[in-house]
Simulated scan of single mutants.
Amino acid sequence: MTTTTENPSIVCYNVSWEDSFYLSAGLAVKIKEAKYVPDIIIAISRGGLVPARIVADFMLERNLLCLRAEHWDVGTKHKKVKITGSTTNLESKNVLVVDDVADSGDTLFEMVKYLKERGAASIVTAALHYKKTSIFKPDFFIEQMDKWQWIVYPWSIYEDTSDFIKKITAQPHTAEQIYHRLGASFNLEIERKLFDIILDEMKSDGMIALNKDALVQVR
């Protein structure tokens, strides 16, 4: 996981699949050591889906549900958190909520409020990363980030990378220039093979187009 970059507008903090697994496993271990035993684990979609599944595995908990909370686009904050999805009866249940990151903190704050309104007996929150800029501090987390950075998790690599590429291709760039800019301007680390796949998918999805020898943003 690295963070160095050149004059960034947004600095990325890169997390690999291996990093993600060990962060999630470590989160489960911390919760177990605290002797918290949930009746149900709720994954916050979309970021918390993978961590919650790994946490559930290490806690041998089969009762895993998902609620969707929309809050962030890349570098952009929505005004309100919207929670959707169906839940089982939470009356008198001990609930563990898992997300990938406490960023602004609004998502976890609103999720706790949402679950309290549905009668949960106790609600414990957990995240892989806690940013000190967050208004909400999870009960459990693995890494604390003292300054704000955009975390790039492997489960959102296409969405995040394509958004950064669209920023770059507001002006025409060759593929080589784009690849260099991702690292130099945003500290986004990506294998060249995956980068080429993402470019092809962006062209297929109508986000960028080839204009002579350069790629430009379409939408």
Rank of each mutant, 00 (worst) to 15 (best):
L65F: 14
E18F: 13
S104P: 06
K166R: 12
D39M: 01
T87Y: 00
F140T: 06
N7I: 05
P51T: 07
I41R: 06
S162L: 11
S16L: 03
T88Q: 12
F136I: 05
N63D: 11
F186H: 01
A184D: 15
E110F: 05
I42Y: 09
V95G: 07
V15Y: 10
P172Y: 03
R62F: 02
K167G: 04
L215C: 07
P51C: 10
F195V: 13
D200Q: 15
M111H: 04
I10G: 06
F136A: 05
T169F: 01
L194R: 14
I198M: 00
G183F: 15
G105R: 03
S9R: 06
S162F: 11
Y114G: 05
L115G: 05
V216C: 09
L23H: 04
D139Q: 08
V98T: 08
S185T: 02
V152I: 12
D160E: 14
I42G: 08
K82Q: 13
Y36G: 03
K203S: 10
D57P: 03
T76Q: 11
N89A: 01
I157N: 06
D146A: 14
N89R: 02
N89H: 01
F140C: 06
D160M: 12
D205H: 12
P172H: 04
G75L: 02
S20P: 00
T84E: 13
K35P: 03
I54M: 07
T88D: 11
K166C: 13
Q171M: 13
R192V: 08
S104G: 08
K193C: 11
R68L: 07
K116T: 12
M1E: 08
V29Y: 09
V74Q: 00
E191T: 11
K80Q: 14
Y114I: 04
A127K: 00
E191D: 15
E110R: 11
T107E: 03
S86D: 15
T107C: 04
P38Y: 06
W72N: 04
R219T: 15
A127M: 00
A175C: 07
V152H: 01
I197K: 15
I142V: 10
E143Q: 08
D106W: 12
D196P: 00
E201T: 01
W148N: 07
A209L: 06
M207L: 12
S185K: 04
P8G: 03
H71D: 08
V50W: 00
H129T: 04
